[in-house]
Design a binder for these strands. Sequence first.
DNA 1: TTAATTCAGACTAATTTAGTAGGATTTAGA
DNA 2: TCTAAATCCTACTAAATTAGTCTGAATTAA
Lengths: 126, 126
Amino acid sequence: MMNLAADFPTKKNIKEISQEEHISSKYLEKLMGILKKNQLVRSVQGQGGGYFLAKKPGQITAGEIVEILDGPIAPMKCSSAKCKMAEHCSASSVWSELEKEMKKFLYKQTLEKLIKNNQTKKYVRK
Amino acid sequence: MMNLAADFPTKKNIKEISQEEHISSKYLEKLMGILKKNQLVRSVQGQGGGYFLAKKPGQITAGEIVEILDGPIAPMKCSSAKCKMAEHCSASSVWSELEKEMKKFLYKQTLEKLIKNNQTKKYVRK
DNA sequence: TTAATTCAGACTAATTTAGTAGGATTTAGA
DNA sequence: TCTAAATCCTACTAAATTAGTCTGAATTAA
Ligand code: FES
Ligand code: FES
C-alpha cells in the first residue's frame, strides 16, 4: 500500500502544533476539526498523519478563519444578527458601518502576510 | 426655593426615554447611572427631575459611550487585555491593528452626526 | 406631607465560551 | 495480522459574562 502521509511534506500533527502554539492538544483537536470541516485544512489519518493547509497561504484570510472559528464578524450582536429593533434604533447604522470596516480589514489580512510580518518580528526582537 | 428641574429644558426622565427607546425603565435607570458616573449626562433629582447631556452632542462620541457602557473597544479579549501569549502569537498584530481601526471609527462618530443621520433616515423611510 | 423621581447595590437567570473526556476509527509499519 | 500513532466525533462541564430585575433609600417640587 502507498504511504499517504508521506505525500504532504508540510503537514504537522496535533502534538507538534500544540507545542508550538502553546495550546492544549485536546482543544486544538477540536479546532482543527472545525477548520477541516470548513475546508481550510486537510488531513491525513492514522500513524504518521497530520494536518496541512488546503490552500496557499496567500489565499487564506484572517476573515475566513475568524468567521469559521468565532462566528460572524460583528462589533455587536445587534449589527449583523438582524436586530428586531434596528428600524427605530439610532445606533444600528454605526454598528453596520463598523462591521463593514472590520470585514474589509480582516479579509485583506492573508496568512502569507501574517507569516511575513511574524518573521520580521523575530529579527527585530532584542 | 428655586426650581432646579425647570432650568434644563432638554431633560427627560426615565419613563419618557424608556418609552421612546423601547427599553425597560429599570434597565435604563441602571445605564443612566453609569453614564452619569462617567459624566456623559447630568441629572436633576426629585419630582420633575430627569437627565440631560453633560456636553454638546458634537462633543460626545460613540467611542466614549461604548467604552463606558461596554468596556474597552476590542475585537478580541486578547487585543487590548495584554494577553500573556501576545509575544509569540502571530495573531496579536492583527488584533491590535484592528482595534486601532475600530477606535478611529467610533471616536469620529459624534452624537450630533448620529442625530442628523437619523433625521434624514426618517424622511427617506417609506 | 405626598408623590414623583433619581440613586445604589445586591441579586438572578440566561447565554456563551473555553476547554475536557472518552472512545471509535484509520493507517503505517513490524 | 497486530500494534501504536494518529485523527475523528460528540457529549459534557465549568467558568465567565451579560442582560435584566428587585428592593428600598434619598431627593425634591408642589
Ligand atoms: S438595539 Fe439592535 S441595532 Fe440597536
Ligand atoms: S493568544 Fe492572545 S494575542 Fe494571541
